[in-house]
Structures are given as C-alpha cells and as structure tokens.
Design a protein around this nucleic acid. Structure first.
Length: 261
DNA sequence: CGTATCCTGACC
DNA sequence: GGTCAGGATACG
C-alpha cells in the first residue's frame, strides 16, 4: 500500500508497539521472505531488544540493542499487523515477530515483494536516498540540482528515490496536478518557479494524506484523488478530460487542460 | 530510455 | 485466459 504517508503511519504504530520490547521469536512464512531473512538469521534475533524505529523515505529501520538493524520495506502491498500473539495470524503474514510482552507484529504482504533484512552494525541498511519529501532539506534548489542532469520526464524522475525519498506513483501524479505541471515535461527543464510549486505540492499532498486516516486503496481515499485512477473523468479544476499514459512502464494520470508543458 | 523480473490477487 | 497493480532493480 505504501508511499511516504502510509509508511509513516505504519512506523508510528510499530514504534508504539515494539520500542523497548525484546524479541522472543522471529520467523518467516514464505520462500521470498526467507531468502531475505534466512532462518538462522531470524533465529539469532531472539533476545534482541528494539531500541528505535525510524523511516527514511519508504524504508523502515528497526534499531536493535546490539547495534544491528532490521530493515523493512513494504514495496507494493506490505503492511504491519500488530496484535496479540494468541490471536489468529492474518492472511499473507510473511514475517512474524513475537515480543516478550505478548505483542506480535507480522509483515503482511500478499504479493511478497517486500521484506525484512538484517544488517550488522555499521552496514548501511538502505540504499542511497535523496532527501525525504517531508524534510526541510528537500527544497526547490535541491530538487533542481537533482534533476539537472536527468534526461527523463519529470514524473518518472519523481519516482526515483535518489531525487526525493518517499514519493510513489499515486502521489507523484497528484502533486504534479496540484503544481499544474505536465508529467511529460523534461525533468532538467524545470525552472525555479515550477520547482518551488512542485516542492510545495509534494509536501501538501503528503501532509494531507498523513492527516487522513485510512489507506489509499480504500474507496474513501481514492475519492480524494484528483487525477489518479480517474481516466476519462472531468478535471475538478478545469473540466478537461483526465488522461492516462504510460511512462517508464507505469501509469500516469494527468489533466491535459491545466497541467502545462 | 525501455523491458523483464520478483510475487499474488483482483478484475475483465 | 489476459491485464493490471501503490515498488525497485538489473540489464540492453
């Protein structure tokens, strides 16, 4: 499910449930999850205490008391299920962590593209990322600097986590609509004024989503979208028809009327 | 840039 | 049966 706002909500729930708790059992329930977290590595987690949970873009890091890190990524369909250890396990639970106080956290991930990996102290858990979309370091100057050498269109560039961390396919489309920028515009051609508008739009789209409970696959969340999933519908701003194109293999929705090249 | 790949489920 | 899906990476 996750772009930055959904991951942030998941991190907050996880943090409240597990910081200060000690792992009593860790195991995987799917071949892909086991490749990422082999059985012996999972077994060695017993006795480790979680000392902190942080988010970097869409990545999550669970700091352990021995200086090592559990790195979690939801990819397309991951989410945490937090509950009691004696409750029935939800469908598609791929990794299960049980804690000393009876709390159980499961990585629920129907497509099993996400996962948890373990990293020894000093090993970087996440790949190099650009500034987090909600970080003050993400401003118009930083965005333009990151885009200057790109030869791609702005929309696929926004999905590159080295440009800005946390933006995904849905909110990239929504932010470009808010900023009135055509997703096909060359990334490197973005001027100062449009970069400013785009940064502000990304922030506001992320903040709005963060403040709204629920997930964006819910009908209620999709109703708030201005362009995503709305091919053929009239633009709420100018009335022109929302279009769908494919960029870098992914759907892009935009309004051909008020999003300018 | 495009394509394929990792997976499963929903939908046509 | 085929297509598509919120992500990311590897390769041509």
């Amino acid at each position: 499910m996750p772009e930055l706002p959904e991951v942030e909500a998941a991190v907050r729930a996880l943090r409240a449930a597990v910081v200060g708790r000690t792992i009593r059992d860790a195991h995987t329930r799917h071949a892909a999850a086991r490749r990422a977290l082999p059985d012996d590595v999972a077994a060695a987690l017993t006795g480790r205490r979680i000392v902190g949970v942080t988010r970097m873009g869409k990545h999550q890091a669970l700091a352990l008391d021995d200086g090592s890190t559990l790195h979690a990524h939801f990819r397309m369909t991951g989410d945490w299920d937090v509950g009691r250890a004696d409750a029935p396990l939800p469908p598609h639970a791929r990794v299960v962590l049980t804690f000393d106080d009876g709390v159980r956290v499961a990585l629920v991930d129907p497509r099993a593209l996400g996962g948890i990996t373990w990293h020894a102290p000093g090993q970087a858990p996440a790949p190099a990322l650009g500034p987090d979309a909600l970080d003050d370091a993400f401003d118009a100057a930083a965005l333009r600097a990151a885009l200057r050498t790109r030869r791609t269109a702005i929309k696929p560039a926004l999905l590159d986590q080295r440009v800005v961390a946390g933006v995904g396919n849905i909110y990239a489309a929504e932010a470009l609509w808010v900023a009135r920028i055509d997703p096909r515009v060359a990334a490197a051609s973005l001027g100062p004024a449009r970069a400013e508008r785009l940064v502000a739009a990304i922030r506001s789209v992320m903040r709005d989503a963060l403040e709204t409970p629920g997930r964006y696959q819910d009908g209620e969340a999709l109703e708030r979208m201005h362009v995503y999933g709305r091919e053929g519908e009239p633009c709420t701003r100018c009335g022109a028809t929302i279009r769908r194109i494919v960029q870098a293999g992914r759907s892009t929705y935009f309004c051909g009327g008020c999003q300018r090249r």
